[in-house]
């Protein structure tokens, strides 16, 4: 069973960000029979995320969400775009993850915005963030502006959703990067060896 976790940073309820997350989840499930999906809604964790930012540790509910994200085989990250980028809540959640949490993890990036003029925010804001985290981001990003939810005769959004979800599912069937975060302590690093061999400069 492949485990996908969707992170939704939508702030209102109902939210188009959550709607987009649900559509992506649904498409991923349709394209891969053997997949379990769980949605982590950051709005419900907003206070805990602030607390963790101040104290340096995650309260239980947030820790539970972090554990799910870190243990997931793949992620669907969906955020609204405010003022040309992701909102602080989304970034704060990423900030409370340990530095190597998302190394090598397949990630689908998606975003919603109040205007189509935000549509490149996935590429100029989200992709660099996930590149820093060394995640494996699928080629298609899914941006939805208000008119995408209308009925203009084409189903461009639906097609992008299926294409991106298909890319994620396809990546999850492959071997990925073979990299993953490790809690192991490397006893044979140069620094470690210098402790038990004090005479060696």
């Amino acid at each position: 069973m492949t485990r996908i976790v969707a992170i939704s940073a939508g702030l209102s309820d109902p939210s188009t960000t959550r709607m987009l997350a649900d559509r992506l989840v649904e498409s991923a499930q349709q394209q891969s029979g053997d997949v379990s999906v769980e949605v982590v809604s950051l709005r419900e964790l907003a206070h805990e995320i602030t607390d963790a930012t101040l104290t340096g540790f995650a309260p239980p509910r947030l820790q539970d969400a972090i554990d799910k994200v870190v243990a997931a085989d793949g992620l669907i990250a969906v955020t609204p775009i405010f003022k040309a980028s992701y909102p602080g809540l989304f970034k704060s959640f990423i900030d409370v993850l340990e530095a190597d949490s998302l190394i090598g993890k397949p990630v689908l990036l998606a975003a919603t915005g109040g205007t189509a003029r935000h549509s490149l925010a996935i590429d100029h804001a989200l992709r660099p963030l996930f590149a820093y985290l060394q995640a494996l981001v699928v080629p298609t990003g899914v941006f939805a502006s208000p008119h995408d939810w209308g009925t203009d005769g084409t189903n461009a959004l639906g097609q992008r959703i299926d294409r991106a979800a298909g890319e994620l599912v396809s990546l999850l069937k492959g071997a990925g990067t073979g990299r993953a975060p490790s809690d192991d302590i490397d006893l044979f690093s140069d620094t470690f060896l210098s402790i038990s061999r004090p005479s060696v400069p």
């Binding site: 602030t50 607390d51 930012t53 101040l54 104290t55 540790f57 309260p59 239980p60």
Partner: peptide, 16 residues
């Protein structure tokens, strides 16, 4: 200075 303006006293004592 360390934990002020963050978690409640009740949460912090339960968790630390």
């Amino acid at each position: 200075p360390v934990y002020g303006h963050g978690p409640s006293l009740e949460d912090f004592t339960a968790q630390t």
